[in-house]
């Protein structure tokens, strides 16, 4: 019986569908435990066995707390963790399996049918509800007094505004932070040993041999107020490539030093550190979303979701032979943001 016009309130799986008649609940077939007292006793013992196993598990957990007290080695922590795991698994699984077996085999397995009630109230309920609502409307006069109603709505509507306002101090405004980093004229390039080093290790141009990749942070980073915030913007990868292989833009010719070039490590897609440098292909790969940059072409994007090239840090050699920045990055580092073209980065 597939009706094109679905007029009925319910789907039609009632007594008759497609001409077939619902045969009604099948007769209950007794389980082995219902008819054989021996089977029932066996099952009972089985279930008790699971509960006993659970107790053994709990006791094992407690015992291993003392027996396998870890020393400072990872192996000992692993051992205790495993023993805890073993104890807890037995303790919990024992209770679980026992209970389920009990429910499956010993508790009555008869299927029961329960009638559904209609979801909506009957006509009388609906009439009473309507009456109550009407009465409330009349007694409060909410329909008759538009002035009260409208001013109330307006008052409630603007009441949360102060709450929004006090969230203002969640953070400072961006200001020029998106356009500046610690780099500037004469700031020396230092090796990044991880974290925030207390001492700067400057880099000599001659130490950056062809094929090298050096992870770089600016001089004096540890003295800044929030070194990690600064590192998040200023991290740089320094590479040296045979100058013959570089296709240098004439306008940026003096941004590198004899094939030594420095690029921001912060991906212009969503900001992961791009640091997978392949020294034969001169590709830089981001491990997060696979944007690939070509170092020989000013780190333009050759694959993946990033759009902008990695910003280049113009570098030079100072009088002591150390690599220094000529200026800050000529463009903002990291992911694209709305105001990106609204101002120049500082020239110094």
């Amino acid at each position: 019986m597939t009706s094109k016009q679905h007029t009925a309130e319910h789907g039609t799986q009632l007594e008759q569908v497609n001409g077939f008649t619902n045969p009604g609940l099948p007769e209950h077939t007794p389980r082995l435990t219902d008819i054989s007292p021996a089977a029932e006793r066996t099952t009972e013992r089985q279930i008790a066995g699971w509960f006993i196993l659970s107790m053994i598990g709990t006791i094992w957990f407690i015992v291993s707390y003392f027996l396998f007290a870890p020393d400072e080695t990872m192996a000992s922590i692993q051992l205790q963790n495993m023993m805890f795991g073993l104890g807890a698994t037995l303790a919990l699984f024992g209770i679980g399996v026992g209970l389920v077996l009990w429910g499956k085999t010993l508790v009555s397995g008869t299927e029961v049918a329960e009638d559904r009630h209609p979801i909506e109230g009957n006509e009388e309920d609906q009439a009473v509800a309507l009456e109550i609502l009407n009465q409330a409307k009349d007694e409060s006069g909410i329909a008759r007094r538009p002035l009260l109603r409208n001013t109330l709505i307006a008052a409630v509507a603007i009441a949360p505004l102060p709450a929004i306002l006090v969230f203002r101090d969640l953070g400072p405004l961006p200001g020029d932070k998106m356009f500046t980093t610690l780099w500037g004229p004469g700031v020396r390039l230092c090796q990044d040993p991880g974290g925030v080093p207390r001492e700067d290790r400057f880099i000599r141009a001659e130490d950056v041999t062809i094929g090298s990749a050096v992870h770089v942070i600016p001089e004096g980073m540890h003295e800044s107020e929030h070194p990690l915030d600064e590192k998040a913007k200023a991290a740089v990868l320094l590479m040296r490539i045979d100058p013959k292989e570089l296709n240098t833009d004439p306008a940026k010719e003096d941004w590198g030093v004899d094939g030594i070039v420095a690029y921001s490590k912060i991906c212009t897609h969503v900001g992961c550190p791009v640091a997978l440098y392949e020294h034969q292909t001169h590709h830089l790969l981001c491990p997060c979303h696979q944007s690939t940059f070509d170092v020989t072409n000013h780190c333009e994007v050759i694959f993946g979701p990033a759009k902008r090239p990695l910003p280049q840090l113009p570098i030079a050699v100072d009088s002591e032979g150390y690599l220094v920045a000529q200026r800050d990055f000529p463009e903002p580092v990291g992911p694209t943001f709305w105001e990106i073209n609204t101002r120049e980065t500082s020239e110094q």
Partner: peptide, 27 residues
């Protein structure tokens, strides 16, 4: 068989389903 739009057929919470679901939690 026996299932219609106007009934629901199965096991009652007490005791069958409670035992099974309680046990299942522990599992």
């Amino acid at each position: 068989a026996g299932h219609t739009e106007k009934n629901v057929v199965g096991e009652p919470v007490l005791p069958t389903f409670a035992a099974k679901a309680g046990g299942f939690f522990f599992m």
